[in-house]
Computed example of a mutant assay.
Amino acid sequence: MDHVRQDEGRGWREAAEEALYGPEGFYRGPEGPAGHFRTSVHASALFADAVAALLCRVDAALGSPPELAFVDMAAGRGELVTRVLQVLPAGVAARVRACAVEKAERPADLDHRIEWHAAPPEGVTGLLFANEWLDNVPVDVVETDEDGAARLVLVDADGAETLAAGPLDELSRRWLDAWWPLPAEPGLRAEVGLPRDTAWAAAVGCLERGLAVAADYAHARGARPPFGTLTGFRQGRETAPVPDGSCDITAHVALDACAVTPGARIVPQRAALRGLGVRAGRPPLALASQDPAAYVRALARAGEAAELTARGGLGDFGWLLEPVGLPGGDPLGALLVDVADDEEQ
């Protein structure tokens, strides 16, 4: 970056908040997220099927409570919660309180059984699932100046950046020291994940008992990217991040910094989904002659499973698992077994 700005400006957190969620923001558009990028939810119904299976595990661990909540954070247009309701066993579905949490308006054609909230409901028992939510919680960006000092990056509506003249605030500096320390080399960048830590802690705090899961593309403290990850997406393509409401603005998540409960753990999505029954194995060739239609369906499912669990793609997403007041027994035991299996492959 060429120069340090002396006047007031907006950091990326403030600029992205307005660009994404303001009155004319990106997420207010009628097409929803699916109109611009492909998440695991949009890639295959197998993802929702796995989430439904996880909800059933949580239900069993909780002793089948009279009301079982499923809270879909950053619900988009309700695609995930709708599918989960459709595939749950009837006995479980009859007890489910389905809640979609989203800042955009409720879709007119959404299933009447689904509640629509701007924030997660308090004191619920069940499963809170946040698929690609935290990456869209806006964060400030910092960059080391020519002397190696970390400065806040300021941005205008056209995406042009400058460095703030003053030092970082104390909370941001402490977070960086703890979770993303920057060497004193010019031009290095980091995203200050404190707003995501706070947002996730609040979401987990809404659970009285159950499990909270954040699924997102992430990095760990020992392998933070030296130049940050801030980027934009528009109509299925990556683009320069411009905070004018025309594109998504996103950055990878420091999931390890977000964890709040003593039993929290992070597993790769490929391992979590395999533990929930999503397998990419090719169907037996004999099925092609015995039942060609069934073979084609099985082959399609295998292809979708491969996309959801692929290394270098969606399978590398992290799942942050946060148990809250779960009684004896571990509903995630099979996931952990699968993690071990996955590491041996």
Rank of each mutant, 00 (worst) to 15 (best):
W12R: 02
A294N: 01
A119K: 01
S44N: 13
R301S: 12
V337P: 00
A223R: 15
A215W: 09
G63L: 14
G123E: 08
P66Y: 13
D2F: 13
L287V: 14
L163G: 06
C258H: 10
L336H: 11
R311L: 12
E343W: 10
S44W: 11
E161P: 01
V71F: 01
E132M: 04
A257Y: 03
L255A: 04
A215F: 13
I249K: 00
A199I: 04
R77E: 12
K103L: 12
V124A: 03
G123A: 07
G228H: 03
P262Y: 14
T125Y: 01
R265N: 01
A104G: 14
G76R: 03
A271C: 09
A199G: 09
D49R: 15
L80N: 09
E31T: 14
D338G: 07
T125K: 08
G166W: 08
C99Y: 04
W200R: 07
V84F: 13
L171F: 04
V41H: 08
W319N: 02
V124M: 00
G78M: 04
D244E: 09
V87Q: 11
E170D: 13
E343P: 00
G222F: 04
H3W: 15
R196M: 05
A104I: 05
A218K: 00
G25S: 13
G275W: 00
A264D: 02
A19L: 12
A100M: 06
D140S: 02
R237S: 08
V71H: 02
D316Q: 12
L55T: 05
E102F: 05
N136I: 05
C206K: 00
L20A: 10
Y217P: 04
H112T: 13
G236I: 13
A98F: 01
E67N: 02
Q235M: 03
G29R: 15
A199R: 12
P23K: 08
A15I: 10
R77F: 09
R38I: 12
P323Q: 09
G277R: 11
L255H: 02
A48C: 12
L168R: 05
L152P: 00
G22E: 13
L127G: 01
W180L: 07
P183R: 13
L321T: 01
V267D: 03
W175C: 03
G205M: 00
S40F: 05
A288E: 10
P33W: 05
A298I: 03
I114Y: 06
L320A: 02
V51M: 09
V81N: 10
A130V: 06
L255Q: 11
A130T: 03
P268Y: 08
P183F: 15
V192I: 10
G222W: 05
L230H: 06
V81G: 06
R297F: 04
V92W: 08
A164V: 03
L188Q: 13
V41D: 12
T309A: 12
H112D: 15
D156H: 11
